[in-house]
Every structure is written in structure tokens, then in C-alpha cells.
Design a protein around this nucleic acid. Structure first.
Lengths: 274, 274
DNA sequence: ACCTGAACACCGTTCAAGT
DNA sequence: ACCTGAACACCGTTCAAGT
């Protein structure tokens, strides 16, 4: 049959990770000519991540990627069934940066949770295209799975009862996802507008002030502005993130032995562990 | 000049909401012929929302929309500068479903917060295309702004000090965003696969079990499964959402008067109030 | 003031064909 | 086993032209 299409056709879930175990270009011996010229999934995935980092998801195309690889547009389809599969591979590749803790590490669970959250946030922010993709796939690649399971382990160490672990993980990592998404996107908007994040922040504030002016609503938002107390947007993000995590950890501790009736969310879809 | 292009060209932020106040098609008197045939922003936006709801963001195109409106592809550009502007309009239109509380309503702040969160979640889940767009724009449309300000007001009523209101809002609504996003997307995956959410959940669980089998990691995840106790995915989502909100509210109360050093996130970008 | 048609510079993917 | 070229059915947007 045609390249990379040896999967079952039955309707159901779709993911690269469910396909034939041995991907193209890693099978029969090295290339004949010069050894670096052969394509494989590894090289293609690496180039995809590089391109996504450099130009974003919107500008990424199979044709653009092929050009980068010095190859014709359709060569890539020998190694990868379609664009979505390639994006799944790219996603799990950067999930390799997550570095979940050693299961035998006996550091305080709160510290470990903070580290997991910070690490997830850093991945999302330094590869802004990830937030747009995480919700499109099942996220069952090896690195994602490792991260999910590390999250469960941390909650267990924190004494969260089994029926609540899913909920607690969801509260934390869905927050991180949303936070990092908005953070990354705001940086993107700033970059597009040719402004620093601080400049864009000031500009949008000024503009809102001009639009709704003297209303009650504006007074409230204005109070918050005043309380900001002269930090950079960067500092605001960090303080906000930290405080929100404090809220979550305090909340988890406070409800640890609370009333029954809370269970876990589906493990697989969306953000890790949720 | 050309249609809908009377904006300033200076680099900076871009948003429909920053354009000339009077949009095309609402100016000079009703249509000559039959009164229903004329296009305007209102009709176009409504058709856009309908199409996005029915077929999703991926299938939406200007040409498809024009066809729906019984008009040539390019007519739409008379009323709207480009696709992004139209999507911004669609987004704020469904944000009109959010129904923030009356500022004079003296219901307990926790109840009001739960209502805001539930209402936001419902909007995101019943219009799954919104999560993909919220992070792409500034979200400064009138309905979004109203929701943002209502969120601030609720935190104020909850006794959260001004410097923490932004962080608390961020913790809650970024969570809701992430949660609803993963919920909506999982429903979408199920629909694409022609399965119910329960079927897809079972199928993915079985599959993961088959893949990693006897490892320690799997044992942990397997324990959680066992603790699920026979609910539907629907019920799981609801319990999880509720428990997570409990965590957040308990956390907000616990840290209400806590240590200093936490401030708000930028008001404008991303999810409302964050 | 509003709408159209043709055109430009793109997409993802299929398919038959080359080596 | 791997790669190519041509083709299909699309995109968003511009521009000159119609009424």
C-alpha cells in the first residue's frame, strides 16, 4: 500500500502512538551514499519542532517543512501519515523537556508539585504552539504519559485520597495550562505588534481606560491597577503564578479529608493527568 | 478606500473593538427591495456562530460562510476587515450568554463565584471553538469585559485584598478554561470517532493498560480507575469540576490574609479577568 | 453603497510514476 | 525502499469592475 498507512481502518481513536510500532526510516541499515542525507522520523520531528518554535503553528506547513529539509513536499509523507500525526510527534518531543521527579525522590510533595507545575508552564511558554495542540490529541505519547503518572504519584505522596487525586491534578494542571496559554499568547500578541509585553500591557490599559472611562466597572479595575505597585509584567506573571499555586496547594490540603463525592477526570485527554 | 479598512495603520494592537465605531451596514436607512435581504454585521456574526457551532473552527471558511449567506465569497469583506475580526465578533457574541450577576446582588460570594465558573464552563463547552480563539485575541469585547469586571467584583465581595484579586481570578478562571477545554475537546474526539464519551473513555483506558501493562506507573493509575466507582464520564466531569472549585475556594479563603508578594496578572489577554 | 469575478499565492493530500 | 511531479480540491485576500 501507500506509505505509512498500514494501520487498521476501523473507526475509533486516532493517534500516531497507536500505529505500527516500527516507523519508516529506522529499519534496514544506514543510507548508502552519505550517511546524513537520509530522512527519518527523528530528523523530521526535530525539524518540525524547530520550525514551530521559530515561526509558529499558523505558518507551519508540510510544504514549508519539506523545503527546510531540502526535499520535495511529498517525501515527508513516506514517514508520517499526515500533518496531525507529525504534530503529535512534535508535541511529545517537547514533552521530553518536562523532567518528572524520580519516584524514589522523597522531597516534600508540595515542592515536587511546584516543580512539576513550573516545568509544565515552562514547556508551554517556551513552545507556544503546544497549547493549541494539547487539546487536539489524546496526548498518550511516552513523555506525556510519564508526566501524567508522576503527577498522580505526587498527589499520592501528598496524602490525597485516591478518589480525589484526579480532581486535585485537574485543578492544578488545568490551571497551569490556562495560565501558560494566556501568558504565551500575550507574549505572542506583543511580538506581533512589535512591542514588549510591558508596552503592550500599558497600551491596552490606557485604551480600556479611554473606552469605558468613568463607570463603576472601571473604578474597580483601576483600583487593581493602582495596587500593582510598579512591577514589570514578567514579575506580575511570576507573582500571580506563585500565589495561584499557593491557593491550590492550600485548597488541596484543606479539602484533603473533606466530604465524599469527588472523583477523577478522564486520565487521557487534554492536559497531562487530567 | 477599500471596505472596512478605515483604521489607523500604525503598528500595535489589533482588534475589531478598536476600529471605527460605526460598522458597515447599520448606517443609512433600510434596504430598498425586500427588507430582509440586506447583509449587516449582525447577520454575518450570527451566521458565523451558527456555522462554527455546527461544523467547528477547522471547517469554517469565509467561502463557506458566504455560501450560507447566499452571497459571493467577497461580499462579507465589505462588513468585516478579515477573518480574524469576524471571529472576534463571534467570540464576544457567545460571551453574551455568560450572564454575570447584578452588582447589587448580595448572594454569598462563593455561590456567585460558582455560578460565574459554571456559566463560563457552559459557554466554552457548548461552543467548543471558543477555547481555540480566546487565546488568539485581546478579548476586549463588551460582553467579555462585563464578565471580567463581574469576576473582580465577586472577589472583592469575598474579602480578597486588592493585590490578590487578580491572582485569585486567574487561579479560578484559568482552571475553568483548561478544564472546559479538555472537556470540550474530549467530546469532540469522541464525536469524530463516532463514539460516546463513555465508550471513548473505556477504549482509551483499555489501550493504555495494554501498552504499559505491569509497570509501577500503571498500578497507580489502575488504583484510581478502581476508585472511580461506576459513574459515567459525564458524572465524573461534574464531580471533578465541583471538587476542583471547592479546592480553589478553600484555597482562596485559606490564603486570604496570607503573606504579601502576590499581585494580579494582566487584565486583558487570555481568559476573562486574567 | 454594495456586490461580483477573476486572479494571486498559498494549503493538505492522492496518485501514478520514477530510481 | 524511497522520492518526485502533476493534479485535485481547497484556502484568505486583493483588486478592478460592475450596478
Amino acid at each position: 500500500m501507500v506509505p505509512a498507512d498500514d494501520r487498521v481502518k476501523k473507526p475509533g481513536m486516532r493517534s500516531v502512538w497507536l500505529d505500527a510500532k516500527v516507523p519508516r526510516g529506522s529499519g534496514g541499515g544506514a543510507r548508502k551514499g552519505d550517511p546524513d542525507s537520509g530522512l527519518d522520523r527523528e530528523k523530521i520531528t526535530a525539524a518540525t519542532v524547530a520550525l514551530l518554535d521559530a515561526e509558529g503553528l499558523a505558518k507551519f506547513s508540510m510544504r514549508r517543512l519539506a523545503a527546510e529539509l531540502g526535499v520535495t513536499a511529498m517525501s515527508v509523507y513516506w514517514y508520517v501519515a499526515n500533518k496531525d500525526d507529525l504534530l503529535e510527534l512534535a508535541l511529545d518531543r517537547v514533552a521530553g523537556e518536562l523532567s518528572p521527579p524520580d519516584p524514589d525522590d522523597d522531597t516534600d510533595w508540595r515542592v515536587q508539585l511546584r516543580r512539576l507545575a513550573q516545568s509544565y508552564r515552562e514547556m508551554l511558554v517556551s513552545h507556544p504552539w503546544t497549547t493549541g495542540l494539547l487539546s487536539r490529541f489524546l496526548n498518550i505519547g511516552p513523555h506525556m504519559m510519564a508526566f501524567s503518572h508522576a503527577s498522580i504519584e505526587v498527589m499520592r505522596k501528598g496524602g490525597v485520597p485516591v478518589e480525589r487525586q484526579g480532581g486535585a491534578i485537574s485543578a492544578v494542571f488545568q490551571f497551569v495550562y490556562g495560565f501558560a496559554n494566556s501568558e504565551a499568547q500575550f507574549r505572542g500578541l506583543a511580538a506581533d505588534a512589535g512591542l514588549s509585553v510591558d508596552e503592550l500591557f500599558r497600551e491596552s490599559m490606557g485604551l480600556i481606560a479611554g473606552e469605558i472611562e468613568e463607570t463603576e466597572l472601571f473604578r474597580a479595575s483601576s483600583e487593581i491597577m493602582a495596587a500593582r505597585g510598579g512591577g514589570t509584567v514578567e514579575e506580575m506573571y511570576q507573582r500571580d503564578f506563585t500565589y495561584s499555586l499557593d491557593v491550590l496547594i492550600a485548597g488541596i490540603e484543606a479539602t484533603r479529608g473533606g466530604p465524599a463525592g469527588a472523583a477523577e477526570a478522564p486520565e487521557v485527554p487534554g492536559a497531562p493527568g487530567a
